[in-house]
Amino acid sequence: MQKVIDQKFQPIEQEIRSHIPTKDAAHHLNRKDQTLRTWACFENGPIKPIRINGRLSWPVKEIKKVLGVEV
């Protein structure tokens, strides 16, 4: 069986942005958007976002670290 790759999202290994929006981060972490929002609200997740004008932005470096892509 072939794995279907969602063409909407760039592989995390090729991500050049320093921070990504919640939807992108949730996709890479295989979690729902709301899970990441909960982590941000309660500050209890493995990654802490920054807030820019009320929006969450997730550090790509930390996502890669959690996924074991980059040390």
Score class of each variant (00 low, 15 high):
residue 1 M to A: 14
residue 1 M to E: 09
residue 1 M to R: 13
residue 1 M to T: 15
residue 2 Q to H: 15
residue 2 Q to K: 15
residue 2 Q to Y: 10
residue 2 Q to I: 12
residue 3 K to I: 11
residue 3 K to C: 06
residue 3 K to L: 07
residue 4 V to F: 07
residue 4 V to T: 07
residue 6 D to K: 12
residue 6 D to H: 11
residue 7 Q to H: 14
residue 7 Q to I: 11
residue 7 Q to P: 05
residue 8 K to C: 08
residue 10 Q to N: 14
residue 10 Q to P: 07
residue 11 P to T: 14
residue 12 I to W: 06
residue 13 E to A: 11
residue 13 E to K: 14
residue 14 Q to F: 09
residue 14 Q to E: 14
residue 15 E to C: 09
residue 15 E to F: 06
residue 16 I to K: 15
residue 16 I to D: 13
residue 17 R to P: 02
residue 18 S to Q: 14
residue 19 H to V: 12
residue 21 P to R: 09
residue 22 T to P: 01
residue 22 T to Q: 00
residue 22 T to I: 00
residue 22 T to F: 00
residue 23 K to E: 13
residue 23 K to M: 06
residue 23 K to S: 12
residue 24 D to K: 13
residue 25 A to F: 00
residue 25 A to N: 03
residue 27 H to P: 01
residue 27 H to K: 10
residue 27 H to E: 02
residue 28 H to F: 04
residue 30 N to P: 00
residue 30 N to Q: 15
residue 31 R to A: 02
residue 31 R to S: 04
residue 31 R to P: 00
residue 31 R to G: 00
residue 31 R to I: 03
residue 32 K to E: 11
residue 33 D to Q: 10
residue 35 T to A: 09
residue 36 L to D: 00
residue 36 L to M: 02
residue 37 R to M: 03
residue 38 T to H: 10
residue 38 T to G: 08
residue 39 W to Y: 06
residue 40 A to D: 05
residue 42 F to C: 10
residue 43 E to K: 14
residue 45 G to N: 00
residue 46 P to Q: 03
residue 48 K to M: 09
residue 48 K to I: 04
residue 49 P to S: 03
residue 49 P to N: 01
residue 50 I to P: 01
residue 51 R to Q: 13
residue 51 R to Y: 10
residue 52 I to C: 07
residue 52 I to Q: 11
residue 53 N to D: 13
residue 53 N to A: 12
residue 54 G to H: 04
residue 56 L to D: 01
residue 57 S to P: 02
residue 58 W to Q: 00
residue 59 P to F: 06
residue 59 P to W: 03
residue 60 V to D: 02
residue 61 K to H: 09
residue 63 I to H: 07
residue 64 K to W: 03
residue 64 K to V: 09
residue 65 K to A: 12
residue 65 K to D: 11
residue 65 K to T: 08
residue 66 V to D: 01
residue 66 V to A: 01
residue 67 L to W: 05
residue 67 L to K: 13
residue 68 G to E: 10
residue 68 G to C: 03
residue 69 V to I: 11
residue 70 E to Q: 14
residue 70 E to T: 08
residue 70 E to M: 11
residue 70 E to Y: 09
residue 70 E to C: 07
residue 71 V to T: 13
